[in-house]
């Protein structure tokens, strides 16, 4: 369907008790587009990704993936069961700030587990694909290492390979370099950049302005649960229209 965005979210609301973390977010991501989301901590960026993935199902709003409405309807039960979770999760991959690798499994097993258990791929097939993916992120020599023996940057690259093994149509990155020592950031960003070059559709929540400028097709600035403004990276980063964006960028650049 030409013109149909890969992912569209409409009027997403999310509350944690009294606190309304997302107050009506609309976002469209075109096929092959890289959208970078910036904003101060607590602005709802991570929650937005977790809502899209239904790890925190939104209370209100709709999600369309490749034209399909993921919400089962207004009278559907609240929480996860009100959504077409399987359809969505098998097409959207997410990488977390804290990697969340399975510590009792080797790098290779981390990558093969879901394809074997969820997609029913043969061990041989899953392994071949995992080896290819781990080689692609530069870890072909670490297949049989356990996560605790890998550096943070290496762990995060395994996590990227693990998400890619499910053949996602859209990838979400949730501050994937924030828990890393500075010298390890580049290797992870390089892996994401390569994915972008290959045409993967993705939403990247990040504090790396340089990365957003270089790799992002569009930058979105969030604050207090809303999208404040969005635009082409160069435009938004060099000449933000909103005072709040300007203040935030000023603070980040001062670091």
């Amino acid at each position: 369907m030409p013109g149909e965005p890969a992912l569209r979210v409409e009027n997403i609301h999310k509350r944690f008790g009294e606190l309304e973390v997302l107050r009506g977010v609309d976002l469209e991501v075109g096929k092959g587009e890289v959208v970078c989301v910036l904003g101060p901590s607590g602005s709802g960026k991570s929650t937005l990704l977790r809502c899209i993935n239904l790890l925190e199902p939104p209370e209100e709003g709709e999600i369309f993936l490749e034209g399909r409405d993921i919400c089962k309807g207004a009278d559907a039960p609240a929480g996860e069961s009100g959504w077409h979770v399987d359809f969505l999760r098998q097409r959207i991959g997410i990488v977390f700030q804290q990697f969340n690798l399975f510590p009792h499994k080797t790098a290779l097993e981390n990558v093969t587990m879901a394809p074997e258990k969820v997609l029913g791929r043969s061990r041989h097939e899953a392994r071949a694909k995992a080896v290819e993916l781990l080689e692609r992120v530069g870890l072909g020599d670490k297949l049989d290492e356990y996560p605790e023996r890998l550096s943070g940057g290496q762990q995060q690259r395994v996590a990227i390979a693990r998400a890619l093994a499910m053949d996602p149509h859209v990838m979400l990155f949730d501050e994937v370099t924030s828990a890393l020592d500075p010298e390890l950031v580049k290797e992870v960003l390089d892996a994401i950049r390569e994915l972008a070059d290959e045409g993967m559709t993705m939403i990247v929540v990040t504090h790396e302005l340089g990365f957003a400028r270089e790799v992002g097709d569009r930058v979105v600035f969030m604050d207090e649960g809303r999208i404040v403004e969005e635009g082409a990276p160069a435009e938004l980063l060099d000449d933000p229209g909103e005072e709040r964006t300007r203040r935030f960028l000023g603070l980040v650049l001062e670091r």
Partner: peptide
């Protein structure tokens, strides 16, 4: 077991039972 483990398993499409069996219980 860290909640991130279940989230990672679920985000990879595993059901509650699969996440329990393959990720949470072994740890």
């Amino acid at each position: 077991v860290a909640p991130g483990q279940t989230e990672a398993a679920r985000s990879l499409g595993m059901s509650h039972g699969q996440a329990m069996r393959n990720v949470v219980l072994p740890q």
